Computed example of a mutant assay.
Amino acid sequence: MLRTAFALALLCGPACAAGPISGPATVIDGDTIEVHGTRLHLYGIDAPEPAQNCETAQGRTYRCGRAATRALRERIGAATVTCERREAAKGRLSAVCQVGGEDLAAWMVAQGHALASRRITAAYTGQEGQAWATRRGLWAGTFEKPADWLQDRLRVEASAGSAAAE
């Protein structure tokens, strides 16, 4: 029994370890980072996907997914990120991550680079309301919610795949 538990711990790696994970971070996208080989989704938020476009108030299209990724990368810089794991959502490990004591998810939502995921937590709805009121980031123009954009994209790809198989 002890051998099985040890083997599972080795297979899981740092993702299964208890306690915080801390160190330099690689930004994957606007709501996902990697710390010491462990990929973590920022708990309670949803940022535009890397390929997602949005529109400015003037109707100009821009790559809002890349803008969110860039904003998170610049906010973290070379700083140490400390993350407290949360329950896995949609098969991915989530965490509340901080730089210098500041919650990165709260910062992303406050800057308008991500939306609060209300079905996960109400923790960031205040920041989202403030970003909306001041027309920051995504709220300065028009956009499709990242989850809806991704679902539409997957549906289109599935339709294209089934049409090609016929």
Score class of each variant (00 low, 15 high):
L154I: 09
A18R: 07
E144Y: 05
Q98P: 02
I21H: 05
E144C: 01
S162F: 07
A147I: 06
A116N: 02
G13C: 02
D148F: 10
T4Y: 07
W107A: 09
C97T: 04
W149S: 00
G141Y: 07
L2S: 09
A123L: 12
W107V: 00
A25F: 02
T4D: 11
A105D: 02
P50D: 11
A116Y: 04
A9K: 12
T4I: 08
L72V: 05
R135A: 15
V99W: 07
H36Y: 15
G44H: 12
L138C: 00
P50L: 11
G37E: 05
T125S: 00
A158Q: 14
R155K: 14
A158C: 00
R63Y: 03
C12R: 15
G13F: 01
V156K: 14
G65S: 10
D103K: 07
V81P: 01
F6T: 14
A105Q: 03
A67E: 15
A47Q: 09
Q58H: 06
L93H: 07
L10Q: 03
A140W: 01
E74T: 08
A47M: 03
L104K: 04
A9H: 05
Q58P: 08
V109L: 01
G19T: 07
I45Q: 01
A133W: 05
V81C: 05
C54P: 05
L72H: 03
G141P: 06
G91T: 04
P146N: 14
R66I: 12
Q127G: 02
T69Y: 06
T4L: 10
T61R: 15
G126H: 12
R70G: 05
M1E: 13
T121Y: 00
G126K: 04
G13Q: 02
A105P: 03
M108Q: 09
T69C: 09
